[in-house]
Simulated assay, not measured.
Amino acid sequence: MRALAGIRVLDLGGFITGPFAALLLGELGADVIKVEWPGKGDKFRYDERGLYSPQFQAHNRNKRSVTLDYARPEGLEILHELIATADVFVVNSRPGVMERLGLGYEVLRERHPRLIYCSITGFGADGPYADRPAFDNVGQALSGWMSRHRRGDDPRVVGPAIADPVTSYYAALGILAALYDRVHSNRGHLVEVNLLESMIGLAIEPITNYFATGQPIPVYQRAATSQAYNLTCKDGKRIGLHASMLDKFWQRLCRAVCREAWINVYPTRADRIEHYERLASELNAIFRTRNRDEW
């Protein structure tokens, strides 16, 4: 899709949130230029193999790039010349950093009134946590999201980053809305997105349930209500099943695993929700009897 063809984005971000937000706009056809410090670059560039790590590639594909020392007056003026050609300016840093460099929103608005300025922070522009650094795990933990995905006292964190890319999606959404408004208003906007509020937004279902019932949702409750299972087969490979709330899917699963008696033992969705733990254990034992390809 080339819906953003003709739109130029300057990406001054690092790590994930800013670069991935810019990447999403590039996927829609925008011309994205990544601006990096000479001799340093994005910290995600580096690994034991050099300056093009898989993490950097994942969040910076489909971009052009330039190195520029905009802490120096001559570099800053060159950056302003580049900004004059841009529609969107993306940064992810703590409040005050861009202002100290002469690149705060108010300064850029005066010189480039049609610019969409996207500022991504950990906790917003003000408040008691505003000046604190924030990374993915901080957003997952403080938002409560992590409590919905773990049980027990294992200190390890599973899976890839969640809070960072979620924040990027919200940032890209805000930028798109600002670009649409600019068509009618002919003026730029400040788009402010932060890691914590983005994760709270993602957790809207468990949070709403808590306010409605006064109780947190048990870790496996959503899986129980939707009859979802991650099952391990004999060869160690896994199958993900989602029987949903419809009886017909449950009945087909029972027949597929040669447990037709379950249709009468657990005839209603409420029965299956109540006995989810038992069903999960028994289904896992059944699926361990064959390799995944056989299933």
Rank of each mutant, 00 (worst) to 15 (best):
T208H: 05
C233P: 00
V219W: 11
F211I: 15
Y210V: 00
Q227R: 13
T213K: 12
A223E: 14
C233I: 02
S226Q: 15
I207L: 15
Y229S: 01
I239M: 10
V219K: 12
A224M: 10
F211T: 06
C233G: 01
D235Y: 05
I217L: 15
Q215L: 10
R238K: 05
A223N: 14
Q215H: 08
Y210E: 00
G236P: 02
R222F: 08
R222P: 10
K237F: 03
Y220S: 12
K234L: 13
Q215K: 13
G236D: 04
F211N: 12
Y229E: 02
Q227N: 13
Y229C: 04
K234E: 12
Q215N: 14
Q221A: 15
P218C: 07
P218A: 01
S226E: 15
R222V: 12
Q215I: 13
R222N: 07
P216W: 06
A212H: 10
N230L: 13
S226I: 08
T213N: 09
I207G: 01
A212R: 14
I207P: 00
K234F: 06
Y210G: 00
Q227K: 10
N230Y: 07
P218I: 03
I217P: 13
R238P: 02
Q227A: 06
A228M: 14
I217V: 15
A212L: 15
A228Q: 12
Q215V: 12
R222M: 14
G236E: 05
Y229M: 06
K234H: 03
F211D: 07
S226V: 09
N230Q: 10
T208R: 12
Y210M: 03
Q227I: 03
D235K: 02
L231C: 07
V219P: 00
A223I: 04
Y220Q: 12
A228D: 04
V219Q: 14
R222I: 07
Q227D: 12
C233N: 04
A228Y: 10
Y229I: 02
K237I: 06
P218G: 06
I207F: 04
S226N: 14
G236N: 03
I217T: 15
I207Y: 00
I217G: 01
S226H: 11
I239V: 12
G214H: 08
T232Y: 04
A212K: 04
T213C: 02
A224L: 11
A223Q: 10
L231N: 05
T213Q: 10
T225K: 09
Q215W: 09
L231A: 03
L231Y: 05
A224F: 05
G236R: 05
T225C: 08
P218E: 02
V219L: 09
I239A: 01
T232G: 04
Y220L: 13
K237H: 08
T208C: 10
T213R: 06
Y210T: 00
Q227C: 09
T225D: 13
Q221H: 11
R238H: 04
V219G: 01
